[in-house]
C-alpha cells in the first residue's frame, strides 16, 4: 500500500464485501457465542426470521412504502422551494444579504425539536411528517446551493459577457449549468439526512412506517425486528444513493470526464 495508489475494480468490490462479511461474522460470534444476552441483541438468523415474519404477517412492506413516500414527498417539497431560492441567493448578492443570516440561523434549529410543536399544529398525520422533513432539509439545501452557484468561475462569466450574454443568459445558461452537478450532489447528500428526520418523526407519533414498527418492537423486546428495520433503512439509502449517482452521470456526462 502506497498513498493515493489506485485500487483495481475487483479488489475494490472484494474489499467492500469483505467488511460486510467480517461485520456479520463478528455479530454472529458475539450473539451465538453467548457473549451478549439475546434480550439485548438478536443474532443475525433470528433477525432475518423476524424480518420475514414482519413482512408476511404484519404488512411491513406497506410500512416501508409509507416511510419512503414521506421522505420523498417532504424532500421534493423542500427542493422545490430551496433550489430556486439558493440559485437566486447565489446569483444576486442583495437577495443573499437578505436571506443568508436567517437561513444560517434556521439551519441550526434541530428539526426533531420541532416535532412536538408540529404535532400541536398539524396532528400526527402525514402533514406533520412532511413538515419535519421539509424543515430539516430546506435550509440546508438553500445554503449549499447558494454557495455552489456563487462559486462560479468569474472568468467564465466574463467570457459569456464578452460573447454578448445578458443577465438572463448569465444566470440561466452559465451559472445554472455550471452548478447543476453540484446541486445534484447536494440533493443526494441531504436526502440521506431526510431519512434521519422521518424516522425520528415516526418514533414520536405515528401509526405506520418503519419508525413506528421499531418503537412497537421495543415494547415487545423484539431486538431482531428493530435491527431488521434499521437495516432496511440502510439498504434503501444505499439504493437511492446508487440511483442518484447513476442519474447524475447520465445528466452531466461532462462533469465526470
Amino acid at each position: 500500500m502506497k498513498p493515493l495508489e489506485p485500487v483495481s475494480t475487483t479488489a475494490r468490490v472484494g474489499l467492500g464485501i469483505a467488511f460486510f462479511v467480517i461485520f456479520f461474522a463478528a455479530w454472529a460470534a458475539v450473539t451465538f457465542g453467548g457473549l451478549v444476552p439475546k434480550i439485548f441483541l438478536a443474532d443475525p438468523v433470528t433477525m432475518l426470521q423476524e424480518g420475514w415474519y414482519l413482512i408476511t404477517n404484519h404488512g411491513f412492506l406497506v410500512d416501508i412504502g409509507v416511510t419512503v413516500w414521506r421522505v420523498v414527498g417532504g424532500f421534493i417539497l423542500a427542493a422545490l422551494v430551496a433550489v430556486p431560492l439558493g440559485l437566486a441567493m447565489g446569483a444576486y448578492k442583495p437577495v443573499e444579504a437578505f436571506f443568508e443570516p436567517f437561513v444560517s440561523f434556521a439551519r441550526y434549529l434541530p428539526a426533531s425539536a420541532f416535532i412536538p410543536l408540529f404535532i400541536l399544529w398539524a396532528g400526527v398525520g402525514e402533514k406533520q411528517k412532511l413538515l419535519v422533513i421539509f424543515v430539516g432539509s430546506v435550509f440546508q439545501i438553500v445554503l449549499m446551493v447558494a454557495v455552489a452557484v456563487g462559486s462560479i468561475r468569474r472568468d467564465l462569466v466574463e467570457a459569456a459577457l464578452t460573447l454578448g450574454a445578458r443577465d438572463q443568459g448569465i444566470v440561466g445558461r452559465v451559472m445554472v449549468p455550471y452548478a447543476a452537478p453540484q446541486i445534484a450532489e447536494i440533493l443526494r447528500l441531504v436526502l440521506g439526512w431526510a431519512w434521519t428526520y422521518v424516522i425520528v418523526a415516526e418514533l414520536i407519533g405515528s401509526s405506520s412506517g418503519i419508525g413506528h414498527m421499531i418503537i412497537e418492537s421495543q415494547a415487545l423486546l423484539a431486538t431482531g425486528q428493530m435491527i431488521f428495520g434499521i437495516i432496511v433503512i440502510g439498504v434503501i439509502g444505499l439504493i437511492s444513493d446508487f440511483l442518484f449517482k447513476a442519474v447524475n452521470q447520465k445528466l452531466f456526462p461532462w462533469s465526470t470526464i
Binding site: L156, Y178, W254
Partner: peptide, 14 residues
C-alpha cells in the same frame, strides 16, 4: 468586442 483570455474559459458543460 470578442475576447480570448489567457486562462481556459470554454464552458465545460458544452
Amino acid at each position: 468586442r470578442g475576447m480570448v483570455f489567457q486562462s481556459y474559459t470554454l464552458f465545460p458543460w458544452l
